[in-house]
Design a binder for these strands. Structure first.
Lengths: 283, 283
DNA sequence: TATGATTATTCCATTATTTGGAACTTTATT
DNA sequence: AATAAAGTTCCAAATAATGGAATAATCATA
């Protein structure tokens, strides 16, 4: 489960950016004036694999030189970006302070934590907790497996919804209207040979997932990595997320994944029950 | 070492905010136009202990109703804030995505990680890595217990420089001019009976720290917690941070802390040496 | 180290966005 | 049901952002 396309890590002039599916493509439509443009830049710099020079950003951001220069200057002045001695822009550490507080206080994560721990004890593999934001899954927590496996998942990372277990599980509990909206705006990106690249095939699988109550990821995002996931949602669907058990394909046979659908769904159920009690049944 | 004054966590109407020393007081002077105002709001909401309602923010932000309403609306639209069903504003999860990438790529942290691990093996206590940003220390990494890092446990939190081991160590390698600038703008906050609340006493200790090459925190930030720290800096002082070993006062006698000054300073030295090789000796 | 090429920064009249007071709507309280 | 409190919308005026072009600083190469 990787931040999206480590295979493209060697940057050439045309693809300094990682594509995270459709995480960026909504920012053009919603009108947030000056902020929208600045957040777009923030997105651009934070999603690049390496610090970007002014000209790199100029090519990517589609803004006039003067405008871009001032915008970057403001972001640097606020500590949201950092400009090194070689004139390269990197994400700023101020973002960490904001985010650490966002994470520390997140109620969903706090409620789920003990349940993730016991699911991890039961399976011995890495457990993830994620939440649907737009068309991305943001990972809120993870409990690592005992056996070290090279996996690039990172708490806080946004990953596409259409090729992750948690993502597909989340989609399966969306209302048909919302699901349709989301899918029609989705931009598919092939990460592995198994990645869904068409809405039709994805939609078909989502139907099965909705019936079964669990989703699999068979090396659809990262080669060699697969998982079982179950959705977690509030009554009014204003909140949608999921929990998963992830590991290397050579260790996780289809039979084993199938077996784990039960503990994963039980964990999801427990978290949901506790959310209803703690946050009120309505939402 | 905590996020800053957990002892004040019980919020009354007048102090929904945590004061982190002088982390917020610079935002008024630098001119970043619209962005500056929006970041101030972000700061306000992320540093509150609980989700804030519109009126709470109105009272704290000193902005007209209409203006504030649109600003918050934009922040919510961009996912930097979230507005729950009860009309309360909380930090948005989009911040996590930005920050996780900032953290994952941070070169200082990547270089330091193995050295932190061996310092932890040697001492058996919690090891912290921090960097000076403005008048705050931002914690970039920590090695705790025998488990690998949990990214946001406290990592990313900004703490005051004047009452943390890493902070005081960092101040000790600032140029006199910069130190003076920083101290004169500093707002002291008493966290424990041992906290420095005057520039004079702090300055005196910083002199001793500069000579000794290490700093102690004797329960100055959090009661019952003390540490030894050593500074880490680049040749041109464009980068300043530090490393520390932290633990409960009942376990860490002054003798033990004194003994650990050596491994802590050796660790700092190793990290600096490697930074010179990897990032160039100039800076 | 001189020269041309590339990259970064500054400037300012024009344009677009933000501002803020007030009216209005919704939600809680008595 | 009446009243108060909280939240939302509106729009002319004030302010900040824009973007093209000129200038300055760097880098690569002879």
């Amino acid at each position: 489960m990787n931040s999206s396309g480590d295979s493209m890590a060697q940057a050439d002039d045309e693809s300094l950016l990682r594509e995270t599916g459709a995480s960026r493509d909504t920012s053009t439509s919603r009108d947030t004036g000056t902020l929208g443009k600045l957040v777009m830049l923030l997105d651009l710099v934070t999603h690049a694999d390496v610090p970007l020079r002014f000209t790199d950003i100029l090519a990517l951001a589609n803004q006039p030189r003067g405008t871009l220069h001032r915008q970057l200057g403001h972001l640097v002045a606020e500590g949201l970006l950092e400009l090194d001695a070689e004139g390269r822009y990197a994400p700023g550490l101020r973002l960490l302070d904001f985010a650490s507080r966002s994470w520390a206080r997140n109620e969903f994560r706090l409620i789920a934590a003990p349940h993730l721990a016991s699911l991890h004890r039961e399976t011995g593999e890495t457990v993830h907790l994620g939440v649907l934001r737009g068309s991305s899954i943001i990972y809120l927590d993870k409990v690592e497996g005992h056996q070290p496996v090279r996996m690039y998942s990172q708490i806080g990372n946004a990953s596409p919804c259409y090729c992750t277990g948690v993502g597909k599980a989340a989609l399966s509990v969306l209302s048909p209207v919302k699901l349709n909206e989301l899918l029609s705006a989705l931009h598919f990106n092939r990460f592995t040979p198994a990645t869904h690249v068409k809405a039709e095939s994805l939609l078909a699988e989502i139907g099965e997932i909705a019936t079964a109550g669990h989703a699999f990821d068979r090396e659809e995002h990262e080669a060699g990595i697969c998982c079982v996931a179950a959705p977690i949602w509030s009554d009014d669907r204003s909140f949608i997320g999921g929990v998963s058990v992830t590991g290397p394909a050579y260790r996780l046979s289809m039979e084993l994944l199938q077996e784990w659908t039960i503990p994963v769904q039980v964990t999801a159920r427990k978290i949901m029950d506790e959310m209803r009690v703690r946050l009120g049944p309505r939402r």
